[in-house]
Nucleic acid binder design. Structure first.
Lengths: 347, 347
DNA sequence: CTGAAAGCGCTAACAC
DNA sequence: GTGTTAGCGCTTTCAG
C-alpha cells in the first residue's frame, strides 16, 4: 500500500454571485451567459463573464437549477439486476439514443422486488430525473397507476399491462411459439422450458410458457409439467436445470431457456454432462444478446427486436417530456428468431 | 398498438408547507417528522403530521434538500461501457456494500474516452452525487488531480497512478505473470496475448503484457510480437484475434486474453475453427467473472480479488465522506488464478 | 442589453 | 416540543 499527497475534496465552489462580482455585472447577466441566452448580452460583456468563470473555475450548481426550473437532463433506467448482459446492452442502446437528444442516462437497480420497483417511483427518488424507463418484472399496471409518478414513466418488457402507463412490451407469446415451432420442426419432442411457469397470469414466465404450450398443442402435443423448470433465469439456474433433469433421468431433447443467460448456463451444464449441442440436445435462448451470439455453440435465440424496443421507449418518453398528454400507448414489436448453431440446420 | 387511458405526468406535488397547513403545525415540525428527529416532536403531533403526509401523498423534494444540506445519499459508479459483464458484477458488489451504509448506487457510462471521463468530474455533474467511484481506462493521476473534483473520488482499476487520488488498483503485472507461468507449466510455448500491447506505460494493456513478458523471460523465452494482438478486449475482439491468427497461419498453442469477455470471444472463435480447448489451445481470461465460470469449456481466469476491490473502494469512499483528510491511499489486492477447464490439468 | 426583486422547497440555528 | 428567521444558488419576471 502506498501513501501520497492529500486527497481532500477540493475547494469550496464559486457561485454565480462570485462570478458576477469578479466580472462586475449582475448575477442575471452571468446566468444569461451560462445559459447561452445569446440575444441578451453583448459580446464584450460575455467575454468578461467567461473570463471570470474561467478564473474562478465556476460550474453551475445543478441542485439549485433543478429546484428552480424542475429539470435535470437526466433519464434513469431501472433494471432488476446489473449483471445480466441483456440489461447492459439495453442501457447502451438507450444511452446512445437519449444522447442524441441531449439527455444523459443513468442506471439504477431495483433488485427485482415489487417494493423496490415501487420505491423508485416515489417522487422523492424520481424527482432527481426528468423521466424513467423501467424494466419491469414484478410491478404491473395497477401498481404503476397507484404510484402516481410525478415524471413520465415508460414501462419496458415483460408484463402485459394495459392501463395508464406507456409501455413497450415484448412479444412473449409469439416469440415462444416461434421458438417452439422451430424446435419441433427440427425433430425435438421433449422440450425443457428453463424459467417457465404453468401458472396463469401475465408474468414473463407465464406468458412465454403459454406461447410454448400453444405451439405444442398446434402440433398435437401435450406439455409435460416435469419439463417446465421454475426458478431463475440466470447462469446458475440454466446450469442447474439441465443438470437436475439429467440426474433425475428425465429425458429431454431440447431446451427453451427464457433468457440467453439461462441458455448459456444450460450450454455449460450440457457440456459438463457430455451432451452435445445440437446433436443430443438443441437449445434456444431469448433476447438475442451478443453474449449468446458468441456462445459455444452459437445460440439460436428469440429476437424481441431490441433496436425497436429502445427506439419506441425513447420516442414515448421524449413525447411526454415534450408535454404530450395523449392516452398511454402500448407498443409490442414482433419477435423473430435468430437461428444459429445451437439448433439443427435444415427443416 | 393499443391505446388506453391518459398517461399525464401526475398532480403537482404537495410541499412541506401544504402538509404543515393540513396538520396545523409549522413546516419545521413536518421536517422533523420526515427526518425522524424523534426527540423533537410528540407522538400525537407526529401522528397528525403523518396522517397529513399520507392524505396529500407528500414526498420530500430532494433537490431542495440537496441545495440546503449539500448531500444526496447517492454514489455514482462510472464505467467505460455498460455491456461488459465485469462492470455489471462490479456494480452489484458495490451497490450491496453501499446499501449497508444507507447509500444508493447509480451507474453512468463514460464511453471510455478521456474527455468523457473528465466530464464526469466536472462539478456540475459530480455535484449530483455524494461521491464517485470511477473505473478508469484513459484518465490518469494528473488528469484527476487537475480536475479538482468537489466530491470524494475513488479510482478503480487499471492504471498505475500515484498522486492525489484514492486508488484501488489491479495487480496487472503479477496477475499476468501468474497466468503465463501457469500456461508455460502446462506445456504452452506460443501464447497469444489478446488485447496486449508492447508499448511502454501503465495502461492496462501495457502493464499486463509486461507481466507476461517477464514470465516468459524467467523461463528463458522471448516474446513474439506477432502474438501480441492489439485492439479491443470485447467479444468481437477475442473472436477476431484467434480467427486472424489461424487464417494467417501463425501457430499458437495458448491464448492469454486480457478480459474474460475477450476470452469467451476467443473460445467461440476457436470452436468455430474446429480447434479444441484445452487440447489444441489453452485459454486464460482475466477478471474471474461468472460468465467465464459458465463458459464452454469453463474458463481459467486471473482473479483480481473482486470482493476485496469492492470492499476497499467502499472503505476509502466512506472514509472521505466521513471527512477524512488523510493522504491518498493506493491499494493493490494480490491477484490469484482461478483454474478451470480451459487449461490442462496436472503440471 | 442589463439589473433588482422574489421565491423554488427545504433545513440549521436559534428563539420561545 | 414547537415556531421563527434566514438563506442554500439559481432563474423567472418585470423595470429600467
Amino acid at each position: 500500500m502506498m501513501v501520497t499527497m492529500s486527497a481532500s475534496a477540493g475547494t469550496p465552489r464559486a457561485t454565480m454571485a462570485d462570478v458576477a462580482r469578479a466580472a462586475d455585472v449582475s448575477v442575471m447577466t452571468v446566468s444569461n451567459v451560462v445559459n447561452d441566452r445569446a440575444a441578451r448580452v453583448s459580446d464584450e460583456t460575455r467575454a468578461r463573464v467567461l473570463a471570470a468563470i474561467d478564473a474562478l473555475g465556476y460550474q453551475v450548481n445543478v441542485a439549485a437549477r433543478q429546484l428552480r426550473q424542475g429539470r435535470t437532463g437526466v433519464i434513469a433506467l431501472a433494471v432488476p439486476d446489473f449483471s445480466a448482459p441483456y440489461y447492459g446492452e439495453l442501457a447502451t442502446r438507450l444511452a446512445d439514443r437519449l444522447a442524441a437528444s441531449g439527455l444523459r442516462l443513468v442506471v439504477e437497480r431495483t433488485g427485482g422486488a415489487l417494493s423496490d420497483e415501487l420505491a423508485l417511483l416515489e417522487r422523492s427518488r424520481l424527482s432527481a430525473y426528468d423521466g424513467l424507463i423501467m424494466s419491469l418484472t414484478r410491478a404491473d399496471a395497477d401498481d404503476l397507476a397507484e404510484a402516481h409518478a410525478t415524471r413520465p414513466v415508460v414501462a419496458l418488457g415483460e408484463r402485459g399491462m394495459s392501463a395508464g402507463v406507456d409501455h413497450v412490451a415484448m412479444d412473449n407469446v409469439g416469440g415462444a411459439r416461434l421458438a417452439t415451432e422451430h424446435l419441433l420442426a427440427r425433430g425435438a419432442r421433449r422440450i425443457a422450458v428453463v424459467g417457465g411457469s404453468l401458472k396463469d397470469g401475465e408474468s414473463m414466465s407465464a406468458s412465454r410458457t403459454r406461447g410454448h404450450v400453444e405451439a405444442l398443442a398446434a402440433a398435437g402435443l401435450a406439455p409435460e409439467p416435469s419439463l417446465v423448470i421454475e426458478g431463475g433465469v440466470d447462469l446458475a439456474a440454466g446450469y442447474a436445470a439441465v443438470t437436475r433433469l439429467a440426474d433425475a433421468g428425465v429425458g429431454f431433447d431440447a431446451v427453451l431457456a427464457l433468457t440467453d443467460t439461462a441458455a448459456l448456463g444450460a450450454l455449460a451444464g450440457l457440456s459438463q454432462r457430455g451432451l452435445s449441442v445440437p446433436g443430443d440436445v438443441q437449445v434456444v435462448g431469448w433476447d438475442n444478446t451478443e453474449s449468446g451470439a458468441y456462445g459455444v455453440p452459437t445460440l439460436t435465440s428469440v429476437d424481441p427486436d431490441n433496436e425497436r424496443l429502445a427506439a419506441e421507449a425513447v420516442r414515448l418518453l421524449l413525447a411526454r417530456l415534450d408535454g404530450a398528454a395523449s392516452p398511454a400507448e402500448q407498443v409490442v414489436p414482433t419477435a423473430s428468431l435468430a437461428v444459429r448453431g445451437s439448433t439443427r440446420s435444415g427443416a
